[in-house]
């Protein structure tokens, strides 16, 4: 017969993992060291050093213009698409320097997928084509492989059951929440190591938001996720670690439970409690 302790242990194993209590993550996907980024003369990121935990969700919070999205984009060199951008410092992805002269930015963006604030399925493509476009652009032609990857990606994005009979319909025929999950499926199809999300739920209703949040929770077993959000409650719900940025500087970084119950910095406290003047 099971002891009460065994029963509880079994429940815990099938339930959610306890929140991390380590101040610093054990394993890192990204090691960001002394990164500064300028747009022309404007300093957007000011000497940020941060290790992003592997297989965990890291939320980046902060007021508008604090550098959250710039920092996120620096993790897959997306910020380089903005003219007159300059960067100093290093970003290591699983130990490899993403900004080395030998590294192709297109490869970086395949390894580090991104989901944007506004869902952006390709308007002229079907649902199915939207998911596998990344693979096609990378030269994959095997239809069986593409079909398998299509189903796998849509299943991982918790969309398969809703669209399996409508794969030929335009991606834009889906609801806002479904379109966002389609974009997540598109990011997953190329099997990235990391998924970056830039306010993925800001345009969605509460039900669609809950589905994306549940998806984030499911995906972190396989992927490292970094998400930018303006929604404090969402950061509290989905993330394991939280980083607070202000005026381009990293003010505080630690376990989400600690940040939201007892932040170490007054600026963090003032921001998350709504006292920012």
């Amino acid at each position: 017969m099971e002891t009460p302790e065994q029963t509880v242990m079994e429940r815990l194993e099938h339930g959610s993992a306890p929140p991390p209590d380590a101040e610093v993550p054990a394993a890192h996907t990204f090691e960001v060291k002394n990164v500064s980024i300028w747009y022309g003369e404007k300093l957007a990121i000011d000497n940020v050093t941060l290790d992003v935990a592997a297989n965990a969700v890291t939320a980046i919070i902060g007021p508008s213009g604090c550098g959250k999205s710039t920092f996120l984009r620096a993790l897959n060199r997306m910020h380089e698409l903005t003219p007159k951008t300059r960067m100093e410092g290093t970003v290591l992805l699983n130990g490899e320097d993403l900004y080395s002269s030998t590294v192709d930015p297109a490869i970086v963006r395949r390894r580090v997928g991104m989901v944007f604030q506004k869902s952006n399925p390709f308007p002229t493509m079907t649902i199915g084509e939207n998911v596998v476009i990344g693979l096609r652009l990378n030269g994959v032609r095997n239809q069986r492989f593409l079909n398998e990857r299509l189903e796998k990606s849509l299943r991982m994005a918790a969309l398969w059951d809703e669209v399996k009979d409508d794969l030929h319909k335009p991606g834009t025929s889906l609801s806002g929440g479904q379109q966002q999950r389609l974009c997540i499926a598109r990011a997953l199809a190329v099997e990235p190591e990391v998924i970056l999300m830039d306010e993925p739920c800001s345009a969605l209703d509460p039900i669609a938001t809950a589905k994306i949040e549940e998806l984030i929770y499911q995906l972190k077993a396989r992927y490292t996720i970094v998400t930018v959000t303006h929604n404090m409650q969402q950061a509290g719900r989905v993330s394991d670690y939280t980083a607070f940025f202000y005026l381009g500087r990293l003010i505080e970084y630690g376990p989400t439970t600690k940040i939201f119950t007892n932040p170490g910095e007054k600026q963090t406290e003032d921001y998350i409690t709504g006292r920012f003047g």
Binding site: M232, F260, T261, N262, E269, I272, T273
Partner: peptide, 9 residues
Amino acid sequence: YQPVASDLR
């Protein structure tokens, strides 16, 4: 208000 930090405490 979903208070956090010192407000929550």
